[in-house]
């Protein structure tokens, strides 16, 4: 297509779908769509994980020509999709344990290789707890061996399934059931946590990407790109959780977008340990815009507020922006 003028949806900076080439458009409802995670599941209203999984798995299915096996870690996604005797999964799907999805997927991939099945692909998925905490050893092992598995982490920044406890992805100062908003430094401790996308890159695996439900088109493109490669691949998707974050279900996409636009959740792609592309921030917002609508950060804005904490969170965002060159004019 030769169209050069971009029209964006009002206030969103999302490019109009109709202006894209047909093969690049995001198609939400079509008879060809597999609906791998089909309707009727029991996710909460406004669940970012259900949305992210629906788009990610369908994109992977399309790329695999509908020959995909999914392995799921224990967690919200597993529980809301398969309460016995129902299942929302329209593809071969296996749930084993909380901390072993990468190893189980490696086993599936090995079985397919042993059987000479070169067409069927393997997807593993889990939440942030299952991925970066209890399943991290198995994930690192899968990266180390470069197993032919695409691992997708849906990051809602705490253990939501068990009632919102802190994980290694819980952001600084966030209130959870185990980091209560009391005391001198309320909420999650500053200076803790880990960054699995960067750790994945340190394994020098073929592909690592971060994505957000705020930009489903980008999410699908990254999944499609990953599926075009072999070996261990990792995509980390930011998925707001209204229940755990204390936000309105209708604000899920807005919050995901503010996380990106504030610089707290940078979107980038890396190959073999090197960043190859970043999504620039078109309209930068202060972290306060992202934090304020969420009850888990309410203590930062109560009474005298927590100016120091807010400044530290802003510094984290600023560092991300510098580190990944998210605001082009600030780099040059």
């Amino acid at each position: 297509m030769s169209q050069r003028v971009k029209f964006y949806q009002t206030g969103t900076f999302t490019v109009g779908n109709r202006l894209l080439d047909a093969d690049q458009r995001t198609v939400q409802a079509t008879r060809e769509r597999n609906n791998s995670l089909t309707s009727g599941h029991r996710a909460c209203q406004g669940c970012g994980e259900a949305l992210g999984a629906r788009y990610a798995v369908d994109a992977a299915m399309r790329a695999a020509d509908n020959r995909l096996v999914a392995v799921n870690a224990t967690g919200c996604l597993e529980v809301f999709s398969t309460p016995y005797p129902e299942s929302s999964w329209q593809l071969p799907w296996l749930h084993s344990l909380f901390g072993n999805a990468p190893a189980v997927a490696a086993g599936v991939a090995a079985a397919l290789r042993a059987k000479g099945d070169t067409r069927t692909r393997v997807l593993a998925q889990g939440g942030d707890g299952g991925t970066v905490d209890i399943g991290f050893g198995c994930l690192s092992g899968m990266f180390d061996r470069n197993d032919d598995v695409l691992y997708i982490c849906y990051d809602n920044e705490a253990y939501m399934n068990t009632g919102v406890q802190r994980s290694a992805r819980t952001p600084a100062a966030a209130r959870t059931a185990t980091t209560p908003a009391v005391g001198e430094h309320p909420g999650n401790v500053m200076g803790q946590g880990k960054n699995p996308a960067l750790i994945a890159m340190a394994h020098e695996i073929p592909y690592v990407a971060t994505a957000s439900v705020a930009d489903l088109h980008d999410l699908e493109a990254k999944v499609t790109r990953a599926m075009g490669m072999g070996g261990a691949r990792y995509i980390h998707i930011h998925v707001p959780c209204p229940l755990g974050w204390g936000s309105r279900p209708c604000d899920t996409i807005m919050l995901a977008r503010l996380a990106v636009e504030s610089g707290l959740f940078p979107l980038y792609e890396a190959e073999h340990g090197e960043v190859v592309d970043v999504t620039p921030i078109r309209r930068r917002v202060p972290v306060e815009d992202y934090l304020r609508p969420q009850k888990r950060f309410a203590h930062l804005f109560r009474g005298e507020g927590q100016a120091e904490t807010l400044a530290a969170i802003q510094a984290t965002a600023d560092r991300n922006i510098r580190r990944f060159g998210l605001v082009p004019e600030e780099v040059s």
């Binding site: 344990l97 190893a103 490696a106 086993g107 090995a110 079985a111 050893g137 092992g141």
Partner: peptide
Amino acid sequence: VGTCQYINVESEFAALSAAIGASAAGART
């Protein structure tokens, strides 16, 4: 051993987990 795949895993937990995945995919494990 034919086309047998030998996986050098990072722990016993991963060893049996990989075996679970392989067996569920129909392989003798």
